[in-house]
Simulated scan of single mutants.
Amino acid sequence: MGTKINLSISHPMAAELLEKAKHMLADYEIRFSANHSKSTLTYVNQQAGIQPVSVDSELYDLIQFGQNYSLSSKLALNITIGPLVKLWKIGFADAHVPKQKEIDERLKLIDPTDIVLDDAKKTVYLTKKGMELDLGALAKGYFADKLKQFFQNEGVKSGIVDLGGNVLTIGENPKYEDGYWRVGIQKPSSTRGELVGAVLVKDKSVVTSGIYERSLNVSEKKYHHIFDSTTGYPIENELASITIISDESLDGELWTTWLFGHNSNAAIDYIDSVPGIEALLITKNNEVKMSHGILPYVVLF
């Protein structure tokens, strides 16, 4: 999955449950990853413009969910972004700034309306050769929610699922009298592990997405991995990172992706009108902005 994973639970059979969770994650990767050569999703991409591919119900549902939000968000989220991601390769050793002609060619392949889904047969068909689905903006949230559901069904009352920038807490933290989990917020301009503060949560998801996670520096210009589907280039605005606090991790994934297309003030104003969702934003000049509901639960260092 390209990240460091930490799972911690309190349960009499913790070792056995954690082993099962490890196998769950391995299974998800072999089905959902766009970077795994033998994953089901990779096969869907390989058959683009050739034939529909039958997939399991979980993968089908997430693709359908992603298509719906790609369209309703006006491409703020775009699960057909794969050809653009593979072109830039930001985060990989061979990352580079593509030629404009190459970008223009890829833009023709990132239209979610070109995904054809058959609910009865559970098939996925990408109508243009060269199309590629990439569920990276949704998958970790989906996996985290599934793991929490599994743990709770097994009787886990306290625990934490940390999928690298995507943290989902279960119940209360037994190490603190107040029961709150302390989830650190990375300082964008610093080395990994240096925090700007922490958010206190119980039974909540904390998802952070930032331009510092994967980047490319060329001729004193920095390119990050969050793309604008209309231009083919990384989004350019004042934001360095977005943290979303919500009940479910998948919601956190959606909101971090969607808000990156807005300036910080507009993003906070919007979140303040949405029940059950809170946000902490950090700008490129290290200014921290928060929605009203989360103010009492954030400690800045």
Rank of each mutant, 00 (worst) to 15 (best):
K4V: 11
L7G: 09
I9Y: 07
M13P: 00
L18N: 04
H23W: 15
A26G: 05
E29D: 14
E29P: 02
H36T: 14
T40G: 09
L41A: 08
T42H: 00
N45P: 03
N45V: 05
Q46D: 10
A48T: 04
P52L: 14
Y60E: 04
G66T: 13
Q67P: 10
Q67K: 15
S70P: 04
S70Q: 10
S73F: 08
L77N: 02
L77P: 01
N78I: 15
L84G: 06
K89N: 15
K89F: 03
K89L: 12
I90Y: 04
K99T: 10
E105D: 09
L107W: 07
L109A: 00
L117W: 08
T123N: 12
V124R: 02
V124P: 00
L126Y: 07
L126M: 12
T127E: 11
T127M: 14
K129G: 10
G130I: 05
E132R: 15
L135A: 11
G141F: 05
Y142N: 07
Y142I: 13
F143T: 01
D145L: 04
Q152C: 09
Q152A: 13
Q152E: 14
V156Q: 05
G159Q: 04
I160D: 00
V161W: 05
D162V: 07
G171N: 06
Y176W: 10
E177G: 06
Y180S: 03
V183H: 00
Q186C: 08
Q186R: 11
Q186I: 03
S190C: 03
E194A: 09
A198E: 10
V199A: 01
K202N: 08
K202W: 01
K202G: 06
V218R: 12
K221Q: 11
K222N: 12
H224T: 09
F227P: 00
F227S: 05
T231W: 11
S249N: 11
D251W: 13
W255S: 14
H262M: 15
S264K: 03
N265G: 13
I271K: 03
E278M: 08
I282W: 02
I282G: 00
K284P: 02
V288K: 02
M290A: 13
L295I: 15
L295R: 15
P296C: 12
